[in-house]
Amino acid sequence: MNIFRFAGDMTHLISILVLLLKIYATKSCSGISLKTQELYALVFLTRYLDLFTDFISVYNTVMKLVFIASSLAIVWCMRMHGLVKRSYDKELDTFRHYLLVAGCFALAVLVNEKFTFQEIFWAFSIYLEAVAILPQLVLLQRSGNVDNLTGQYIFFLGAYRALYLLNWIYRYFTEVRFSRWIACVSGIVQTGLYADFFYYYFLSWKNNAKLQLPA
């Protein structure tokens, strides 16, 4: 495992911890899209079907279980926990996420590495992860104000994507058998979606001001 990949995994983990911290410490999920969180839970559940068939390393297995458990915990809190549930911006979180699920599934059936149950769901999870942030970005855009922890959550998610791109570039040049074009193309799309957010995040950081997105 190279340094970019490891740093990418860690920033991914940190982003989830920041989100859990926000929900736990403030007992609020304002500014967080339940739809995006549900999509992530679906991403992990469909991608890690190989937990039952392949063993890669203890690190790999533990991280997969952590991602599945934490994403389900976040969805559970936002749906079931009284205080957290009340702070959810339901009327702003109206992105039609089922369209993303349907589109990604259709694409996975058409474009996959092999036409098998597991490979189709793997491709589906890669496509869905690329666009799963959209309901979250739309919610932020609508609410305008972004609190610090929410801003940091998205910042770390974006950093994870950027580091994975560096990881693929590194692997492309150092490993003969490395080919992950489905993941690479989806990863580039996904990282691109963050570019706009990063721009405003950088501006607010530079001006030492609260992050505000233009209407």
Binding site: R5, D9, H12, D50, D54, I56, S57, N60, M63, K64, F67, W122, Y164, N167, R177, F178, S179, R180, A183
Partner: peptide, 10 residues
């Protein structure tokens, strides 16, 4: 026949 690369990423 080349062996397929494993999906070792998260």
């Amino acid at each position: 026949h080349e062996q397929e690369p494993t999906k070792d990423e998260l």
